[in-house]
Amino acid sequence: MTWQVLLSTMLLQMKQSFVRPMFRFCLLANPVLNTILICEMFRSSGRTDFAAYAVLGAGLMGLWCCICFSSAGDLNRERYMGTLSLLFAVPAPVETVLWGKILGNTLLSLGTLLLAWLTAGVLYETWAIPARPGWLLLVLVITILCFLQVSVLTAWLLTLSRKTTLYMNCLELPVVFLCGFVVPVEELPAWLQAISNLLPPTWAVRLLRMAVAGVPDENAFWRCLGILAVLMLAAGLLSRRCGRAVDRRVRVLGNLEVC
């Protein structure tokens, strides 16, 4: 039942997301515009890993924008359509439904990485060729899992409030900067770096850059992967606990519907 629920929710989500103009903007226009913006910012920076920052930065920004706005926005839409409460009252675990929804959005949103790569290549002749294609493939799968996990945790917390739209707008940019999508985390103030290093996407982004730009010390890659695995495990446990608590809390508060 779990796989059937996961797959059918994922397909339903893809169908519903793609017909929305806002999602299409985030998916198609946003990565192109972001790539142009970041390429212009980094062109004269003299950084050798320019391609890794421009393409990955724009692609990841688009990916996060799609996940954040659609996943959080979907909760709001479900609340207004009266379907959110139904999802909490059916036999299928609501956690599986959330994973399915976010998986659907994330898989669709992966197109942003491809679009950013094409934009940088066509407009700036910067074809980012991965130094370690095998690593890139591995890290892409882990990155998807990492984004899924963060999004599910966020979705649980957003379920508690009816002000989802407000929170989703507050979430987008801090994550972009804190997780080093565009600006290296090392450029941030030390106290912010401490927060950054606790967030799993920061390490996923580091790994992606290593796979694209290459790394002199191979051990650094595996060390980074180990830290990400530990953080993802912790986030997974937190998400499960949070899910159980929210599932009970929303039924006590009775706030799954619009007043």
């Binding site: 629920v5 169908k15 519903q16 359509m81 009266g82 036999p91 299928a92």
Partner: peptide, 24 residues
């Protein structure tokens, strides 16, 4: 009662298939 509680951007058949899956 009312018009809530269905996915408007899906057909009736797709709505029922989806809820059928949620009920196992």
């Amino acid at each position: 009662g009312g018009e809530m509680g269905v996915y408007r951007r899906l057909s009736a058949r797709d709505n029922l298939k989806y809820f059928g899956n949620l009920y196992g």
